[in-house]
């Protein structure tokens, strides 16, 4: 499940410490990656994200970064579920990670430490807090599954304190990198609003659309589009998956409730489908 992780060698926590603790602001001077502090979220184009990501400089190409993104997202999903966190909290953590790696390179920071810390942060900011110790335990266990089983005696004595320190360190790093922009808007509320307005909340369509939103979190869509556009894309894909004829079924005046344009919708849908591409 974590193949990359092994490639990178085991003591990645230490690696993180060395590079992370120094608080070397690798991405500080990134061109046009400065987020505004005005409160309004800044969106980037897909092209900008792919071209300007700081990971590029360290030789991580788009494909590799997509893979890395996917890997920390599935890590977050598992971690979040093991800590019994609600989906919006997990989703927020994923987006915080996306925002972070838009400003800092994958080569400089361990994504699992950052992800754990992002979930810790989003759990607090979404008012679903869990004790830090549980994050430390579960995350460490997930990262070092085999080590824990086989080399228990081989573990550094103070690994717990050490890892905890890593996560707290990363929390500050995250906040600085994101310029304290920690609120994330999700498409879930838009989906619920539009579907309930049209009496479709119980329909299968809604559940499928919901799943598409969850899957879509692994893309960079959240950095590009407002939540209503993403919700529209998910609903569109859901309808298509269920072989519903969007135009013929008549009651699709509700389509307008998403307030999106065909061009944006097309873009969102294409990027969502990329996730399932062979």
């Amino acid at each position: 499940m974590y193949p990359l992780h092994k490639e990178q060698g085991r003591p990645h926590c230490l690696r993180f410490l060395i590079k992370g603790l120094g608080l070397v602001d690798v991405g500080r001077n990134q061109p046009n990656m400065v987020s505004s502090s005005e409160g309004a979220e800044v969106f980037f184009s897909r092209e900008e994200i792919d071209r300007c990501s700081p990971s590029r400089r360290d030789g991580i190409d788009v494909q590799k970064e997509t893979f890395l993104r996917n890997s920390y997202c599935s890590f977050l999903q598992t971690l979040g579920m093991r800590l019994q966190l609600p989906q919006p909290t997990i989703a927020t953590a994923m987006v915080l990670c996306h925002r972070f790696f838009l400003r800092r390179s994958h080569a400089a920071y361990d994504r699992f430490v950052i992800a754990t810390s992002a979930l810790f942060l989003s759990a607090k900011s979404e008012e679903t807090p869990r004790p830090l110790n549980s994050f430390v335990l579960v995350s460490y266990e997930m990262c070092h599954r085999q080590d824990l089983a086989n080399f228990h005696y081989n573990m550094p004595k103070d690994w717990f304190e050490h890892y905890k320190e890593c996560i707290l360190e990363a929390e500050q790093l995250l906040l600085t990198a994101l310029d304290f922009e920690i609120s994330v808007q999700h498409p879930y509320s838009h989906l619920i609003a539009v579907f309930s307005k049209n009496g479709l909340l119980q329909a299968n369509l809604f559940h499928v659309a919901w799943k598409f939103v969850n899957d879509g979190l692994r893309s960079s869509l959240w950095l590009q589009f407002r939540p209503n556009h993403i919700a529209a894309g998910a609903a569109f894909l859901a309808a298509r998956t269920l072989n519903m004829d969007l135009l013929a079924s008549g009651g699709f005046g509700w389509w307008q409730d998403f307030q999106t344009t065909p061009a944006i919708l097309d873009n969102v849908v294409r990027q969502m489908l990329e996730l399932y591409g062979s």
Partner: peptide
């Protein structure tokens, strides 16, 4: 920050998050 076992205190996060909006 160092004082709290749970990282950045949740009241601080609330203030930051809400007062931004």
């Amino acid at each position: 920050l160092g004082k709290y076992k749970e990282g950045v205190h949740v009241t601080a996060l609330r203030e930051i998050k809400l007062l931004r909006e």
